Computed example of a mutant assay.
Amino acid sequence: MAKVDIVRILGALDLDDVESVVDINCGAPELAIALHHRYGCRINLIGVAPGGKLDRVNEGKLSDYLRQLSEAGIDDTAVRLVTRWGNLKPTDVLLSINSFGARHNIKALAAIMDKVFHPQSRLVIEVRKGSGTYPFLAKYGGCNTLIAPTDKTNGIAVMSVEPKNQPVGEWSEIAQELAGKNGFFTDCGEHSFLYVPRGDTLVVTFDNLDIAMTKREERRPWGFSFIESEGWSMLGVMANGWTWFRDDAVVAEFDRLRDSGFFDQFKRVVFYGASMGGYAAAAYSAAAKGSTVFVISPQSTLDKEIVPWEMRYKKVWSRDFSGHYGDASISSQTAADVHLMYDPYV
């Protein structure tokens, strides 16, 4: 079994919140404990037979697992043994250590992966060289290899599920209704802009369409309800996929809004986002000089010439991070205030 580097895995997850973890065949008690202590998440345990069907967990292994959790101070109410298919719910982190990918064929896990993955899920997996794990996982998302598998030892990888492209027609109808007569909805193809006018404070948010349409019952941009309750105006920028909002059409639209004086009508303009959206909020804040920026765990750029060590977001490597909105650490310098929130332990 490969050595599990807890600190590296927590960093590679790149998640601000984890509500639930599913551990396959009780393979990663130390990691489950660390995740619970870090996020306060629920720990769900499932037994899976080599063929991929739910099965009983070995009683001795389960007893030892529960003992370790108890000794770590984790209450019984935070742990659940899932034995029925109907009780298996979407999860934030799926753990497959010393199991599928290493001991069993990863393809057999497809039905469970399809059941538990949502647009922001992560898979922590032990990988045996030559197992075919990487080609199989490519259809789900991008893998960040923390320890490369060799002929003698297994490796460890963290896979991030890639949001699926959503039909824009349904979102277009929702957005146009939200915009009303005084707002606007601009479809830029891969991205869109929704403006909802209210008060003299404007909040500009950045979100992924797949998450908004599949993970939120109200199907609204990130922060919509809170911004509405405060009586603030909103400009919601949506991406249909992992784009980091690097698109000539997005650049052109922010330039148009800037040059038309759109931002000047507000007493206060706030740019707000997390991770990919955090990058965009900081980068595009240059369109409204003197604005306030609130970002959670952002990146400054994914330009490989500047950050050759960044291996988590291979999907976006082909995007152009040049131009006046390219490097968020530079373009955000025109803001009056930048508030950056991050976890110093990951």
Rank of each mutant, 00 (worst) to 15 (best):
S291F: 08
A288F: 02
E253A: 01
R216M: 12
R220V: 09
Q299A: 02
G231P: 00
F185Q: 02
P197T: 00
G241E: 06
A286W: 08
S260M: 05
Q299H: 10
A274R: 09
D259R: 03
L202N: 02
M234A: 11
L202V: 02
F184V: 01
A252W: 01
G273F: 07
G241R: 03
F254W: 01
W222F: 14
D264A: 15
R258G: 07
I296Q: 12
S225T: 13
R246M: 08
G180S: 03
L194G: 11
A281C: 10
V203M: 04
G290H: 08
R268H: 13
G180N: 06
S291P: 08
G183N: 02
F224L: 13
E230W: 00
G189C: 06
A281W: 07
R256C: 04
D247G: 07
S297P: 04
K289R: 15
S225R: 10
W242C: 15
F254P: 06
T201E: 06
F262E: 00
A239G: 12
P197V: 03
A280S: 12
R258L: 06
V293N: 15
W222M: 09
V196E: 04
G223F: 08
D210R: 09
M238K: 06
R268Y: 02
K289H: 12
G278L: 07
W244G: 06
L257P: 01
K215F: 12
D259K: 05
S297R: 05
E230Y: 00
F185S: 09
K267D: 12
Q265W: 01
M234I: 13
W222R: 15
R246W: 05
Q299T: 01
R246K: 09
T243I: 06
F224K: 09
D187Q: 02
D210H: 11
E177C: 05
T243N: 14
F263W: 05
W242M: 14
T214Q: 12
R198W: 03
A281S: 10
S229M: 04
W222D: 15
W222G: 08
M238E: 10
A282C: 12
T205C: 05
D248L: 11
G278E: 10
F224S: 12
F262D: 00
E218R: 14
V203W: 02
S192R: 07
D207V: 09
L235C: 02
A287W: 05
V237D: 03
V196P: 04
F184Q: 02
R220L: 12
G183C: 02
A239M: 11
R220D: 14
V293P: 11
W244F: 14
G273V: 08
I296G: 13
Y272Q: 13
S233K: 06
F245C: 14
S285D: 07
I227N: 06
Q265C: 01
